[in-house]
Nucleic acid binder design. Structure first.
Lengths: 300, 300
DNA sequence: CTCGAACGATACCCTGCGGGTATGGATGTG
DNA sequence: CACATCCATACCCGCAGGGTATCGTTCGAG
């Protein structure tokens, strides 16, 4: 079939997310009837039913579900194409690097020093965004490079270079029954209240875990005894007075990686990767260790 | 800016590939003036100049070059979204597997046997395509899974599972000065005429290496003394009478991997990956060895 | 059981965008 | 210098895409 226009994809995504033609139309700034028609036409041309409609409700079919995720990917790719071209067209070439607070694990300064020595280096603009925001920024072209954290961030679609790994620890209220232990395992934490990070849908079964957006929120909630958290060792320095940090023996190590869109052929990006690897090499002799890590299992 | 429509991306790709508005318009089945206008409008909305035009020639700007590769990716993503949704909408669920001739390294039979035992298994349609065609088929959704060969195929954008690795050997005319050696290194082959495979642009400097599309073409050319090739060991069984196969000591091993679009969440695909891994495990005890391999360096 | 509200689909209209033809202007070539 | 080539501009038209009005169905309140 002839490919759908991006407008049609955006329409479908809106409807699929709202599961309501009226609200979706409102969100898109248009009236409901043309939206209904557009979706119907899209389905007819694709030859697949994407939505189950009754006059009371709208639901995604199986095909609609895959088309939703695929459409999001495609729309990201389209907006990214524009952003990256715009970036490349600028007269003052600049790299945009996305990271969350402390997302560089202290390596940024050293990386930039190495970077500036490279002949391919250009100016770097560092954007400090919210936790879990880096990957989307890289996906839709708002950033050229990002520091991501495996296994929390979704690395699909990116090439990455490992910077360092850190073991994780449990962060507990000082009064917690486990706070005095010398070490814990993940099994010890079953049944405890864990936080929900942005991008984490909360799964199906768990009854509304408290949502957190940064480390200090976690510390606050832990200090109040409402939460137990699993965090990288380096957070120990920012632990609050009334919380205890206990090593976790079997938690998978966290990795900080530098990531960039795959198949990138920019010299400026390449130079930054080199600089990152060098900086990590130097730092790697110290407390943190570098090594192999399995980032994630995509399939369910 | 508002996102470009897929039609506009397709227009740009056509012009960027032809570097000629007239021919591009012809290819698109339209007249030249509306095409010119569409591109101009696209540039104006993006706020970036993509093409350098004189009244005699058209050339890509830097931004145009990145927009070309990004647009191709985006268009692939759009068509893939449709294909995958159509696939998911079929009443008889079916997996499409793309491979080149012998691209399974003899494992397919065993993989399918393992697969059929899995409760998530569905019918599998095997498409045997040309060499280098598997990755594009996976990218634009014509296939759900593929057997790819690292480091020849571009694995960017896919998740993969290693099936097996093979050492490579040199394939020479029997009369060649090196044909009698017990072993060779890559250095011994410098200056020799090597074939150009599909997808290989031929680089910049080399003077028109002969283009080949399959193994028998290579064998023919080698037998005629016009070529020297580097191929996986398993091809030895299909060597022609007048060619010699000599082990290469320092050639990187080839890997056969099973690949699928990243972030896939289909149980049917997951089952096939499991089956592949099991089949490879069983076979791995034999002649071929499994191991670590560095697939490719993306950055230049 | 009835009535009204909610919601998607249909009918109908109109504007503007995407495409067509004709032609202009610039530039390299015999 | 005339001509061919090739992209841009001018102008026109049809229809796709969007708007308003309304219908048909379904669910829930009473």
């Amino acid at each position: 079939m002839d490919v759908p226009e991006t407008r049609e994809l955006a329409y479908f995504v809106a409807v699929a997310e709202e599961l309501h033609f009226g609200r979706a139309a409102q969100r898109l700034g248009m009236a409901q009837p043309p939206l209904s028609r557009a979706i119907a036409r899209l389905e007819r041309r694709m030859g697949v039913q994407l939505l189950e409609r009754t006059s009371r409700s709208v639901n995604l079919t199986g095909a609609g579900q895959v088309f939703l995720t695929e459409s999001r990917k495609a729309l990201d790719a389209v907006t990214a194409s524009v952003r990256r071209a715009q970036r490349a067209g600028r007269t003052d070439p600049k790299l945009t690097l996305a990271m969350k607070p402390n997302g560089d694990a202290g390596l940024l300064e050293s990386i930039l020093q190495h970077y500036r020595r490279d002949p391919d280096a250009v100016d770097i603009e560092v954007i400090v965004c919210g936790i879990g925001e880096q990957a989307p920024m890289l996906r839709d072209g708002r950033a050229d490079v990002a520091f991501l954290t495996a296994p929390y961030d979704d690395l699909a679609g990116f090439d990455t270079e490992l910077l360092l790994t850190q073991d994780q620890m449990a962060v507990l209220p000082r009064a917690h029954r486990l706070a005095g232990r010398a070490a814990l395992t993940l099994a010890d934490l079953t049944g405890e209240q864990l936080p929900r990070w942005p991008g984490d849908d909360g799964g199906a079964t768990d009854g509304r875990r408290p949502e957190v957006r940064d480390i200090s929120q976690v510390m606050q909630l832990v200090a109040l005894g409402q939460l137990v958290a699993v965090l990288p060792e380096s957070v120990r320095q920012r632990a609050w007075p009334d919380v205890a940090c206990v090593p976790l023996l079997d938690a998978p190590p966290t990795a900080v990686v530098v990531a960039w869109p795959e198949r990138t052929t920019s010299r400026a990006v390449a130079a930054l990767i080199r600089a990152s690897a060098e900086a990590a090499e130097v730092a790697g002799a110290g407390a943190v260790r570098r090594g192999e890590i399995r980032y994630q299992d995509t399939l369910t």
